[in-house]
Nucleic acid binder design. Structure first.
Lengths: 142, 142
DNA sequence: GCTTGAAGCTACAGCAGCTGTAGGTCGTAT
DNA sequence: ATACGACCTACAGCTGCTGTAGCTTCAAGC
């Protein structure tokens, strides 16, 4: 029987985060000792590892919920998992494309910085004058 | 005299967001009509454009506060603005490097997907088995 | 059996950076 | 005078945790 602290240590998760996952339904309600402390089995450790790995790959908790659901029903088609992963990949690619634009503009800004007074600073000037910029009106996706 | 709605439209910002910026001290408290509605001048429109552009470049509100402060004091050195921009650039580069790792792993996962039953799904399997993965234990920086 | 200290418990507030809602008021065109 | 869109305040909610306060439980050592 594993304590919450052991699961935390094994997966690099904070204890509170595990309780949070339970609260939002990603982790099951585990058994308890007479004193009310959570005790887990190996299945829960695996499940938590799965969740953490997926989080590291940038999957949202909702996406992970779907993936866990698929994982719990091995007879079902793999297509859905594939679709979720492809969606995630597309998002990653979009973020990278946006970041690349930002990188270019930041580099341009910095390169042109005269190092003089703020009045002549290209960094500030570029920010002030939107017209010479590459980016559109969308907010940056994190 | 410009209404809050006009500023919103001109800068692609939600009205509530402008009020939020005022609340957190990025935008000044503007004058009001007798009825209590906000009225702005051109300076505020410029300031808001500056903020939005910086947000699009991924600057945090705190960084923008610093940049605005520099912009308000044109006689000061440009070095600080340059440092802030360089910091931002470094963050962007780090995010891109991480995203690139994620992209590779996602591509690998998807490529190996058999298209069969979930039981054989590589996507799920890779998530289950952390040992074959490229990423470390840090959480993905957004 | 008793003590101690680490680890666990609940409940709740807070982070960034907004966004949405409810329930009301203002401004202006007709 | 009225209608209606734009505005107002106040507050809750989003994602995904993280931190705190104040308490209880567990396990090891004596």
């Amino acid at each position: 029987m594993l304590t919450i602290g052991y699961l935390a240590k094994m997966t690099g998760t904070k204890v509170q985060t595990i309780r949070y996952y339970e609260q939002v339904g990603l982790m099951p309600e585990p058994g308890r000792t007479d004193g009310g402390q959570r005790r887990y089995g190996d299945a829960e450790l695996d499940r938590l590892s799965f969740i953490r790995h997926a989080r590291q790959l940038g999957f949202s908790l909702d996406a992970i919920r779907e993936l866990l659901d698929l994982s719990d029903h091995p007879a079902r088609s793999c297509e859905e998992a594939d679709a979720i992963a492809r969606r995630q990949l597309k998002q990653v690619e979009q973020r990278m494309a946006r970041l690349d634009l930002l990188r270019l503009e930041l580099e341009r800004m910095i390169e042109e910085c005269s190092g003089g007074r703020a009045a002549d600073c290209r960094v500030l000037e570029v920010l002030r004058d939107h017209s010479e910029c590459l980016t559109d009106h969308e907010s940056i996706g994190t």
